[in-house]
Design a protein around this nucleic acid. Sequence first.
DNA 1: GAGGGGTGTTACCGGTCAGTAACAAAGCGC
DNA 2: GCGCTTTGTTACTGACCGGTAACACCCCTC
Lengths: 226, 226
Amino acid sequence: METCGASPLRPRERIIKTARDLFRKHGIRGVGVDTIAEQAGTNKMTLYRHFGSKDDLIIACLQDFANDAEAFWQSIEMSHPDSPMAQIHEWVRIVSECALDDLRGCDMANAAVELAEDAHPARHVIEEFKMAQRNRLAQLCRDAGIEKADQLADTLCLLIEGARVNMQSVGLEGPGARFISLAEDVIAAFAREKPERKPATLHRHASAKIKGRGQLHAPLPAANRA
Amino acid sequence: METCGASPLRPRERIIKTARDLFRKHGIRGVGVDTIAEQAGTNKMTLYRHFGSKDDLIIACLQDFANDAEAFWQSIEMSHPDSPMAQIHEWVRIVSECALDDLRGCDMANAAVELAEDAHPARHVIEEFKMAQRNRLAQLCRDAGIEKADQLADTLCLLIEGARVNMQSVGLEGPGARFISLAEDVIAAFAREKPERKPATLHRHASAKIKGRGQLHAPLPAANRA
DNA sequence: GAGGGGTGTTACCGGTCAGTAACAAAGCGC
DNA sequence: GCGCTTTGTTACTGACCGGTAACACCCCTC
């Protein structure tokens, strides 16, 4: 019956993994500490020795989630070490794959929905995480030589965020399931725009070689609005 | 202390309005039926006479929300009766205004997050609503003579959905708050693409006059992807 | 083998939850 | 006025919730 009962992990890690799993499946408010402890192959007392309250456990889960995201970014970087543009495409691919895996959306965003109180201690964890993700993507866009890097990052952020929440509402029938295609089109449109002058200095892990697919298109006037 | 206590509305309507308000503020699972009844200036028994269960009340709230959305679409249509493109811009404007009003996102999407069980009776209400909204927007895009109308509708859907959930996580500092600008750029890029041949027959409320702002831009090659 | 930290077990607390029973009162059409 | 429907009031149930107390146990280290 337990999900991590026979595991070599220490109770603390089992509790976090189990809690993340149950929170994701049933919602944070939809699962109690007793259930978490039992499913983790331990008991409520041990849980409360490691986490002073359910809120503490929630925060620990979100931080564990953030750690996973960190590893995800490193894998992205290693997949195409010298092509930021290829990393962007890899980001689209993997992030879409994760969203399609189950249809329960983003744990951070879900937590923001469920923990509605402004003062909830988890909220600043969520806020910092979301901002960091966006900035990381924006940096990647800059490294790729995208002229309007911040705008592309903003657009991609909203697209994936929207895709995750949309799939939670309508499953695979809605626009969320078509995220890859939509995102790639947006990237192509942004990559088509002419870079400033010098072919974009890479800010991080500098590499002069820019060979992203988007760069192969002919430059077109900026799609700026009024 | 009550929100609708002195209102001329009948208890049923007061309960629905109050429940919607409280659900939105504190989350569906974050407020009990006692609180709802009291805040609505009535009592739990009357609540349970009108709604057999809390789930029934939730569904009634979501349907009430859908009614409001219907009125919203009609106001959009009346704002620019003969210009679908202008209606799209109006849609962007109002939808963004609503999202910025409070930062609690979309009631339907929030409900999908909180009511995680696949079999929950509210889920098909949510699903139908979300699909109907997307299709309505897609029809508007077709009426506006957008070549890739469905793709634009999908993109705009994900952008606004993402904006709402993003603002719930990071407030006004993140990309969600820049939705209008991002959406307008996307619309401009799609409107710039050359319409098929004949200047797009209007399917509903036919009007030959197409004078949306996006049409003023020079036509550009399609932003199609691989 | 003694000690101690981490863990398990059981029982409990007060609070809140969704939902119900029984009865009283008020409004309203006739 | 009468009668019916709607509403209000109080009290209750049983379940579950987050959190704690007290005590026993196991395993590792010295």
